[in-house]
Write a protein that binds this DNA or RNA. Structure first.
Lengths: 225, 225, 225, 225
DNA sequence: AATGAATGAGATTTCATTCAT
DNA sequence: AATGAATGAAATCTCATTCAT
């Protein structure tokens, strides 16, 4: 990939070239960071001249934004596609988590762009990621709520299955926030030099979350003193 | 801070000046990122001329490294200082977590440097953070191990108390990652329009973590099908 | 004017298309200046693609030259057309001036190209304007000469009517320059917050010019001491 | 002037260097125009590196503005310095005109910047020149008014000296506008290849203006038909 | 007759870094 | 201990111009 410098690029329809450019851009942005990435390098990797990148994507800022948007859409799509509506809430959550970790593991540069680079730099970019995060969080909130209503979380032989009343809506939303954050953080860590396969990451988090959730719903609480 | 331009800085011992420079640098690096931060801005905020920064800290790279090292040391110090040796493992863990979250909340720029900026850029820097992470992880591993031996985690009467062997070091490190991510996410969410007091967020997280951890250590597992 | 982008332009005979392009070019050159004008903008305003502009007009330089030539021709044409040969010299002169000012006022972009932009840039262009200027100057010289011979200028009963020899060609050209400058300045001033109707401005200038000219031709001179 | 490339410039105090830079900038801007002038060329002519120009003058735009301001101030200063308050209005006007033409002839690049380049490009710049022009115009307005009151303009043997009542304030201001415009235009023309010495230009204009003014004040009017 | 795709060359601007005092 | 003066190198972005259809 990335044609030799000085060789004229073969003619291609604009839509295709734009995707190639964004592929290259995601790769470079993901590894170098927004500032350290150079348009020269991106153009070269895309196999075209710099002016063409500007002609199609206008500026470094817009290019970065376009990358964020595309990768955010791809990620949420991957998660949504993995879920089969009929299943129980825990199975849906598991499927979603697994898809999330698989997708981020398979597209580490894209994930770096979304999770690290976009957040590191100011306001045009952070908002894009916030939108994606909100979509995911809303989804998880829904699932946790459903799980609570179904009484699914493991009540190992013990009493009050389904005492979901103790989990207020605010708590549920908070848990969803925490879960999404945990997943994001784990994904980044897992990608660093293959410390954890996607499935293992999903399992660890699911175990952690599900047993924890179960405990909470049974009324278990930890407090200092 | 940040002396008026053109006014000659008062003579100060080198050690003090270096700290001022690093204060400024952490502030700027934390907000702008490594690449976007400019030595000009740092020098101005420190209230000295640029050549003095170079005289004392040699280069941007070394300055950044020095910042990372100092802030990593401060963070681990804060965590260690919070722990009273005599206490039960769960209390120690709680105290450590609280100190960690307090310190990072009170020093957001430092935390940004450690957590975001240092990882975003290549190899001279990442290693510094890895060192800190290893120190903290070892500490947590020790505490969890101790807790497991003590049988502290909740619902102790139940099943296999003390089957701590099932939590490999790798899992512990992963959980730490997840916790940090969850905490950050919660913090961001809580700050946004006062949805949750910071204290409540910490409590929710600890409950979540502790019951989850307890469940895991009792051998509870979630698995598909 | 300026077709919507992406819509294929209707086929038109070359001559028409060239005029459209030059219309657009004069507009853009007149407002932006030669260097700041971009071929992109010109092509878009003309409603055609850039390669077509190059096909017909070869280069930016040639396009600019073509604009200068066309507008110079239009201006001299307008002046000549206004004059009815039978009239007295002063009436002819008045008619010419009026036509000149009317045309330039009605075609400000064209006038900007001729008066400002063409002179600002090097040698291919200045020569074009010089040619026009010489044509106009020759014309005015002739009329003033005629007026002098006719003894038209005011207060004819007085002193040395017809001492036109004292006005060298160089003086006439200088006066033309001064008149143009005065007219432009007056025009700008009159337009600004309606301080003076355009007509009044022209009358004031003509009075000023004509009486001054008359005085000069009668041999009146102002000199220090 | 304009040190050889690659040779390090000798150290100089900032104020001096700034003037050298502006000298070079006026030269280049005046000949090439704002857009065609390159910061590279300006820096080289000034004998310094480009970054130093930016360090001191911030941007091309600010550099251009600084040039305009400096040259406008110099020109108005030159005109004002030439006038001796005690003299009659016509002598003052003459002295001012002569100084104006001399200064513009001696500083053709500066005059090009003020008269041609600054007006050719948009709004940050035009305003600067407008201020200068207004100062000069106000001055001339005052002198013409004074002349009218003194009844100075040549009343060659004829009747109504001092019929200044016929020149309303608005007319006087209009004449001043025209005079300043004429002078500006003449100055540009005279500079082009030495067609007219400064003194001759002043004389021509003074004759033109003074006799014309006299005629107007005697009630002479030209009107079509 | 007309255009979508593509680029070489050069513009302004920024930044880490050094020198001389 | 401290700084004003200065720069090499590289970044983003623009533009006139051509090629293939």
């Amino acid at each position: 990939m990335g044609a030799v410098k000085g060789v004229k690029a073969k003619r291609m329809p604009r839509a295709v070239r734009e995707q190639q450019m964004m592929d290259a851009a995601v790769h470079i942005f993901g590894r170098r960071g927004y500032r350290a990435a150079s348009m020269d390098e991106i153009a070269e990797l895309a196999g075209v001249s710099k002016p063409l990148v500007y002609l199609y994507l206008n500026s470094k800022e817009e290019l970065f934004t376009a990358c964020i948007r595309r990768e955010a859409a791809r990620l949420t799509e991957a998660v949504k596609a993995a879920i089969e509506p009929g299943l129980a809430a825990d199975r849906q959550l598991w499927a979603g988590l697994e898809a999330f970790f698989r997708h981020t593991a398979e597209n580490p540069d894209a994930w770096s762009v979304l999770h690290r680079q976009a957040r590191t730099h100011g306001e045009p970019f952070a908002a894009e990621v916030t939108a994606m995060r909100e979509e995911l969080t809303a989804f998880v909130t829904f699932l946790i709520g459903a799980a609570a209503r179904e009484g699914t979380p493991p009540a190992p032989g013990t009493a009050g299955a389904g005492r979901s009343g103790e989990l207020a809506d605010r708590d549920i939303e908070g848990l969803a926030q925490a879960l999404v954050g945990a997943a994001e953080s784990l994904a980044g860590w897992a990608n660093e030099s293959d410390k954890l396969a996607a499935k293992d990451a999903a399992a660890t988090l699911m175990n952690f979350a599900w047993t924890g959730l179960g405990g909470l719903m049974r009324g278990e609480r930890w407090s200092p003193r």
